[in-house]
Amino acid sequence: MNKHSDNHIVPYRLYIQVLAGLIVMTILSVAITKINLDTLTVFAAILLASIKSALVLTFFMHLKFDNKLLQILVISVFVLVALVLFITFLDYNFR
């Protein structure tokens, strides 16, 4: 019944590495705003946030070690949100 609790013990080291990556990206995203990149600033900030959230999802939230189903579901939910945003902007962008 209960195979879940004893598979994949994630080593501490991996978490610390991921954390280090996350902090570096946070500092990076702050640094980027200091440089004037015009519209690219927004883009860079969102891109870095997306990479960071992907890291949290894959490692901290164990998606990498989970079954395929869950991975597909999580991706679908993000796609859904993106589609809803896209369709909403079909209104605001062309008004």
């Binding site: 013990i9 994630v10 080593p11 501490y12 978490y15 610390i16 991921v18 954390l19 996350l22 902090i23 946070t26 949290v56 490692f59 901290f60």
Partner: peptide, 13 residues
């Protein structure tokens, strides 16, 4: 971010 890492490490511990 650090707090997220600490609780993730707790699941290993």
């Amino acid at each position: 971010l650090v707090s997220s890492a600490t609780i993730a490490m707790a699941t290993t511990a």
